[in-house]
Each structure stands twice: as C-alpha cells, then as structure tokens.
Computed example of a mutant assay.
Amino acid sequence: MEKPLSVSEAAAVYGTVVADLQHPIILQQEGQPLAVIVAFDEYQHLRALAVDEAQSQQAGWLALEMLLKDVQGRVSDCTPEQIEAEIGMARAALKKA
C-alpha cells in the first residue's frame, strides 16, 4: 500500500524515495492528500488512459448528434414524446457503452 508523506518528509528523503518508485508516494499537507509521485511510465500510462477516455466521449457525442439528426430527419407520425423517449434510450445506451 502507498505510504503517505508530508511535503517536508518527501523533501528530506527526495533522492532515495524517488530513485526507487515501485509504489506511488502520496504527499500530504496538514494531513490532507496534496499530490502523488509516480514513476514516469505510470504517469504516461495514466495520461494515455485520459486521452482515450476523452476520445471515447467525443465519439459518443458525435454518434448521439448523428442519431439526433437521423431521428429528426425521419418522416414519421410519432409524437414528440415518442421521439424524446427514443432519444433517451439512445443516450442511456451510450452511457452504458
């Protein structure tokens, strides 16, 4: 498990702790988590996950926009309530994905 350190504790042992980053180091200030020091490869992995998530969200919004255009372009005798229900189902499906 990660061992929380105060900022001053981390400063005192910076060289030896950071040289062996097998586990994240949690920095605390006044007993509250402030930051985490992780190995650079772990940082890169986390950044890649964040980029993937952002791209996934953007793709989801684009798919929803295309679906809305499709629904709005349909010639139908559906009521506005039925159309809204279909849009709601599509949004729910995107959230699950």
Rank of each mutant, 00 (worst) to 15 (best):
39 A>M: 02
81 E>W: 14
27 L>V: 03
52 D>F: 11
81 E>I: 12
50 A>V: 07
21 L>V: 06
43 Y>C: 04
40 F>A: 15
44 Q>N: 08
16 T>D: 10
49 L>E: 10
23 H>P: 01
37 I>W: 04
69 K>Q: 14
46 L>G: 02
5 L>N: 05
36 V>G: 00
32 Q>M: 05
59 A>S: 07
78 C>W: 14
73 G>M: 06
72 Q>M: 14
20 D>G: 02
76 S>P: 05
16 T>L: 07
11 A>C: 12
11 A>D: 09
52 D>W: 10
4 P>H: 02
32 Q>R: 13
28 Q>H: 14
81 E>V: 07
14 Y>K: 08
14 Y>A: 06
11 A>K: 13
6 S>T: 15
2 E>F: 04
16 T>I: 12
56 S>E: 08
13 V>H: 14
75 V>W: 13
64 L>G: 06
40 F>C: 00
70 D>Y: 10
68 L>C: 14
44 Q>T: 09
83 I>Q: 05
29 Q>C: 05
85 A>L: 13
56 S>K: 07
80 P>F: 03
46 L>I: 09
35 A>L: 13
64 L>Q: 07
79 T>M: 07
12 A>F: 02
75 V>D: 15
18 V>T: 15
10 A>Y: 14
76 S>V: 04
22 Q>L: 10
21 L>I: 12
19 A>M: 05
23 H>T: 15
59 A>Y: 09
38 V>K: 07
65 E>I: 00
78 C>I: 04
3 K>D: 10
12 A>C: 04
83 I>G: 02
49 L>I: 06
29 Q>T: 03
64 L>H: 01
